[in-house]
């Protein structure tokens, strides 16, 4: 198996944390994984993105140009990266942040109203964890337990009190996508 995932959004949305958490989850699954961030002045303000490659084989390039999955946390990321998703790939987008879908060939679009769910939880900061829930549900590579095991590793110690909240957000995300209310194929 090979998952090539691009997570993209605004700086401040916790994009890097999502990537690292997913990578940690993959380690708990006993899989090979690489995480590659945008770095340096690239990530000063504006956009942020990272690549996570998960495989049961030795991983070649940590840098990818095309992806099996795009997790888009804002509209700019959908616009910019839809063309980088491989045929048959999936685009998960943070519904509240996104206005329109550009056309894509043989792509699956999945909405997850992460911002809305996080707002309902009275903590917009966990929108990324809601999205994470949607992402792992779609990928079906990293289990909920493996993912949440990783929280203690990627969150700094002084944030460990927030682990239960983050877990709850992940579960909400999984449930939202499970309902499958807004998943459709575009041709």
């Amino acid at each position: 198996m090979l998952d090539e995932i691009l997570i993209a959004g605004f700086g401040g949305q916790g994009i890097m944390l999502m990537g690292k958490l997913l990578a940690c989850g993959a380690i708990y699954e006993g899989l090979e994984v690489t995480f590659y961030p945008s770095y340096g002045p690239e990530m000063r303000g504006g956009t942020a993105n990272c690549t996570v490659v998960i495989s049961d084989n030795r991983i070649g390039s940590p840098v990818r140009k095309f992806f099996t999955c795009l997790m888009a946390m804002n509209q700019a990321s959908v616009d910019r990266f839809t063309g980088s998703v491989k045929p048959g790939g999936v685009i998960i987008h943070n519904d509240a942040a996104i206005g329109s879908h550009p056309g894509g060939e043989d792509l699956r679009f999945i909405n997850i109203p992460a911002n809305q769910i996080a707002t309902d939880m009275e903590n917009i900061q966990v929108a990324n964890m809601v999205a994470m829930g949607g992402l792992i549900h779609v990928l079906n590579t990293v289990s909920l337990d493996s993912l949440t095991n990783g929280l203690a590793r990627v969150l700094p110690k002084h944030r460990h009190n927030l682990i239960p909240l983050n877990e709850k957000a992940v579960i909400k995300g999984i449930e939202a996508v499970e309902k499958g209310s807004d998943s459709r194929e575009l041709r």
Binding site: Y28, L144, N149, A152, R153
Partner: peptide, 17 residues
């Protein structure tokens, strides 16, 4: 849906670095 009991041992010595 709930999170199962934590396995904080992690995988022996394996760290995302």
């Amino acid at each position: 849906m709930t999170v199962k009991k934590k396995d904080n041992r992690a995988l022996p010595g394996k760290t995302l670095m």
